[in-house]
Simulated assay, not measured.
Amino acid sequence: MDMSFLPRRCCESGYVHRYPYQFTIRARVTSGAETELSKIVNGKGDWMFYGHSNERQDGFALWWLIDLNAFRAALIRQTANGYSISCGDMANSDGTCFKWFDIRSFPTYPPLVVACSYDYSMDSGNPPKQKQNIISTTLKCTP
């Protein structure tokens, strides 16, 4: 496994309650450099870590470890299998563009989420709350 490319994203505090099921991947930058989405679609990376920062900005309120092979497979198969992945585009004021994806819209097999800080099987439709997990308290956000 080549660990030279391990996508990781950390959202600022406050987004976890507005977008509890979404993860974003940088899709365009003003410099024209290759983006995370381009690298992932072209086969780079096995997993992506995605986390929502907690209010103190010293850990995560919610995080996922995403299987990028499952992500790529879902993108390839979505129209052939008759389901649609919920996704969209968003732009920041600096010209950076992201693609957002809703984890609930991905097929159950192969599983998209390998590990997370929340038990989605117990979901009642309310925003996720942090599950007590030793990993979520030891991982830190760094700028």
Rank of each mutant, 00 (worst) to 15 (best):
H52Y: 13
S105N: 07
N81L: 09
W64Y: 14
M90I: 09
K99A: 10
R77C: 07
I76G: 09
H52C: 06
D67V: 01
A70W: 05
V113K: 15
D89C: 11
V113I: 15
A80L: 11
L112S: 10
T79I: 06
L62C: 10
Y50E: 01
F60Y: 10
A61K: 11
D89T: 07
D89E: 11
F49C: 02
Y109L: 13
G59Y: 04
F106W: 06
D94Y: 12
A70P: 00
R56A: 07
C97W: 06
T108D: 09
E55V: 15
P111D: 04
D102G: 11
S86I: 12
Y109K: 15
A115V: 11
F71A: 01
I85D: 00
G59W: 01
P110S: 12
C87S: 06
I103S: 04
H52R: 12
W47F: 08
S84V: 15
W64A: 04
S93N: 13
A91C: 05
L75K: 06
A74L: 01
D89S: 11
M90S: 12
I66G: 01
L62P: 05
D58E: 07
F71L: 03
M48N: 00
A80M: 07
I85K: 02
L112W: 07
W100Q: 14
G82W: 03
A91Q: 02
L65K: 11
P110W: 11
N54A: 07
V113W: 09
L112K: 13
C97T: 14
S86Y: 04
F60N: 03
P110T: 10
F71R: 07
W47N: 04
C116I: 11
G59L: 04
E55P: 06
A73Q: 09
T79N: 08
N54V: 11
F98A: 03
N54W: 07
F106K: 08
Q57L: 06
I66K: 08
Q57Y: 11
R56I: 12
A70D: 02
C97R: 14
I76V: 13
C97K: 15
F106S: 01
Y83N: 03
T108S: 12
E55W: 15
A91V: 05
H52P: 08
R72S: 00
N54C: 13
C97S: 12
A80Q: 14
R56C: 10
D102M: 15
F71W: 00
T108M: 13
F49G: 00
D89A: 13
N81I: 00
I76D: 05
M48L: 01
S105R: 09
N81A: 10
W47M: 03
A74Q: 05
W100A: 12
D102P: 06
S86D: 02
D102V: 14
C116E: 13
Y50Q: 05
S84Q: 15
S84D: 07
S93T: 08
L68W: 05
N81D: 09
M90V: 04
R56D: 06
D67C: 04
A73D: 05
L75V: 03
C87Y: 05
M48Y: 00
L65E: 05
